[in-house]
Design a protein around this nucleic acid. Structure first.
Lengths: 342, 342
DNA sequence: GATGCAATTGCAAACGTTTGAAATTTTTTT
DNA sequence: AAAAAAATTTCAAACGTTTGCAATTGCATC
């Protein structure tokens, strides 16, 4: 409650002008040695702390960056944020992290708030509801303010100065190719929500790979999930009950893969002997569960760092109106026990 | 780059005063109907967006809250943040999340920055280095500014308006008690870093429980780890090589428990047949790995919500100088296959 | 046409800090 | 001792917005 000490307070106390106090505290060379020492000492004693808010207004700079993401409670997303932070924090920027929970209205609200707070750039990973609704005006607002908008992981084509995404298509392709090359013939897919582009890309990778290797795509082997462990349970029971059971399951992420493995084990089937399982994300535990899980690694931290670099490059660019940088990072298949022999 | 449109710009365009524009845009009833409509329409057309920074300065309010945490890349920590956010976001607050990476200097720097940015409250989960160094002056600064400081999960006794922590001691006690009651006689412990109070509390719970049930504490069964999966590997190999092997391992968290389980399996031993394993955290996958992992659940989201409530209560409190609220939440033992028969 | 009243708009200060230019004080030079 | 030079300090404006109070305008009433 007690109002923080201001420069004016100190000036009044010392019967001098605020300018003198300001310069003294900033070690401006024009200030008398004694004056400087006295003022600095007093400022420390009363716990003066410069008001950054007023400086932000004066300098029209806030050194803060908006980061709008659907969630932060999984390894990949937080790795992205960590990557951005690792580049921008040392330069004095601070991140304003906004969690949309996949809700369009929250995303929209956060963007407005960030603009109003005069952040110097906005990183966005588009929420699912936004894709569903097809409303992208809030991104247009960012664009109209000439503020750098950079999409991370989940992009929208338009209004962006840059984007860094993962080549989910080829990641999925590689995983399925690996399954085929290790002799699997009926490969099922636990698909993600249709509205999410990452999930769709993985499905495409799955689908195209089957086609290229001359396999028929079997509708009954493709089931939707919502990314969560639990959502894999029922679909996998269903898959195992099919007259001609699949001999491999490619899962849209590690969570569903773990759910799948549980069901398969509970049914007394052997992994990878009878059914191979592959996931997507390479979460930290995937190497330690049993059997260890084959998975497609997404370089989240690197993605964040690249996105931050794009932002910095944009700041330096002379022809900002033509600046545009879109990076697609390759994921990497990590083969483990769940798709191989012991 | 293009300077955002200001109220002054609009005033100049309409040859009226900024006050009129301000009132028109805020629907002040004293403004003429036509004027209001024209101004609002124009403002929308040119994409006027109120500058929140100037308002923050004027009102001496920022509606932002600092959250200083060691990490965000695990489920528990992000659940805490989610809990805080779920309470404060609907009230218009935005969170300024700072990740210290367990570094004292970063923690100190972030606290200064938050103070300078005039946040209205600070939530802190103390970093390990800060405990090691024993430097708590930055917390004193918060206290001296009469700013509410609330410790979450990892606390320091002093300068705080409140704290919400988990009763790690009793959580660990319950886990070990469960192991004893299910017939285990040589219970090992994968301990966390000595400097971290959460880890120490869990160790105390382990230690006291053994004592109460009349067991000797065996130094050779207690090994330090650093919370990470990998750090469990070597210690567990060592434990299994002992002349008289333990029949249970209580691990400081799920990560190390998963590492332990891997080693035990690799050595061809049966879980829980020959060795039981219990963890701490109840991470989302613990119910789905094989065997499913007995673990102590920490209510992270609830913790965050409680912390946020303390902050709100403090705002309302009339006698702030005596306000103090310290909550200890009970964790809950979740028994699964890794400590039971099939 | 003067007066009164309501409706509408403008003025000025405030928030805390910085900074170029001007003003004042101190020191040096002649 | 006066003038010039150097050192130090103050003034005033700026950043964008809000708000109590004063000023202006329009309109009706007498």
């Amino acid at each position: 409650m007690s109002r923080p000490v201001t420069i004016k307070d100190i000036a009044k106390k010392f019967k001098c002008s605020p300018s003198t106090v300001s310069r003294a505290l900033n070690n401006h060379p024009v200030i008398n040695e004694d004056t400087r020492r006295n003022l600095q000492e007093y400022a420390r004693k009363v716990g003066y702390q410069r008001n950054q808010v007023s400086l932000n207004l004066l300098n029209k700079k806030t050194a803060s960056i908006g980061v709008v993401v659907p969630t932060i409670n999984n390894y990949y997303e937080s790795a992205i944020i960590e990557g951005i932070d690792s580049v921008l924090q040392p330069l004095g920027y601070s991140l304003n992290i906004c969690v949309t929970n996949e809700q369009f209205l929250l995303e929209q609200g956060y963007v407005e708030k960030l603009l109003s707070n005069r952040v110097e750039g906005i990183f966005v990973s588009v929420s699912q509801e936004t894709y569903d609704a097809g409303h992208y005006e809030h991104f247009e607002n960012i664009y109209n303010r000439n503020l750098p908008l950079i999409f991370i992981d989940r992009e929208y084509e338009g209004f962006a100065v840059g984007s860094v995404t993962i080549d989910d298509y080829h990641g999925a392709f590689a995983a399925v190719e690996h399954l085929i090359k290790t002799g699997r013939r009926r490969i099922a897919h636990l698909r993600g929500p249709q509205s999410m582009s990452v999930a769709e890309q993985r499905f495409r990778g799955y689908s195209e790979c089957l086609k290229q290797y001359g396999f028929e795509e079997d509708e009954s082997l493709i089931i939707h999930t919502d990314f969560k462990v639990e959502s894999a349970i029922k679909p996998v029971y269903h898959l195992l009950d099919l007259p001609s059971r699949p001999d491999a399951i490619f899962c849209v992420n590690d969570q569903t893969a773990i759910g799948a493995m549980k069901v398969i084990r509970d049914q007394g089937l052997d992994i990878p002997g009878e059914i191979a399982v592959a996931g997507f994300d390479d979460s930290p535990i995937s190497g330690y569960i049993s059997p260890s899980l084959t998975s497609v690694m997404r370089p989240g931290r690197q993605l964040g760092m690249k996105a931050a670099r794009i932002f910095l490059d944009y700041q330096l660019a002379d022809k900002k109106d033509t600046f545009s940088e879109h990076i697609i990072l390759p994921p990497q298949l990590v083969v483990r026990e769940s798709t191989l022999g012991e």
